[in-house]
């Protein structure tokens, strides 16, 4: 079974109106794309639920099953960052997970700073791709 370093399989950025803005998958997730994406999609229910009560951007682990775990981060503008990891991986501490999301958020800000980007449209950005690659490689 999949067992990467930190177990990160999928990163998904979802807009305030629930439209997917960007999604990245690790090489290990290539065989289970549908399952991982569906898991991330279902996790958004709980992200929405927690985001209203959250006192900070990082929401922690929001959902898990015997295969995957989902961590989430919500920006101040309501953009949701979802990270799906393998539940059999060792996992990361909260501080490490916060750092990952901060990095992702930074990359997202760089991506939308593109003057030709229309807000709400899917993002095509090398910043995000690079950031995701680094996270998957950890």
């Amino acid at each position: 079974m999949i067992n990467p370093g930190n177990g990160a399989l999928c990163i998904s950025i979802v807009g305030k109106e629930n439209a997917r803005l960007w999604s990245g998958l690790s090489d290990d997730a290539s065989r289970v794309v549908c399952e991982v994406e569906l898991f991330a999609h279902v996790s958004l229910d709980i992200v929405d639920e927690r985001a209203t009560k959250a006192t900070e951007n990082y929401l922690g682990q929001v959902y898990s099953d015997h295969l995957y775990k989902c961590f989430a981060y919500v920006s101040s503008t309501g953009v949701k960052f979802v990270l799906v990891t393998d539940s059999k991986s060792q996992g990361l501490r909260d501080s490490e997970m916060r750092a990952i999301f901060k990095k992702l958020h930074h990359a997202y800000c760089n991506a939308i700073s593109n003057p030709f980007y229309v807000v709400g449209q899917p993002i095509k950005s090398k910043h995000l791709t690079e950031a995701a690659k680094q996270i998957f490689a950890q």
Binding site: A19, R20, V33, E37, L38, A40, H41
Partner: peptide
């Protein structure tokens, strides 16, 4: 639901 949320893959 997947189409609405644009959460789909080639398999979908």
């Amino acid at each position: 639901r997947l189409v609405e949320n644009e959460t789909y893959s080639e398999k979908n």
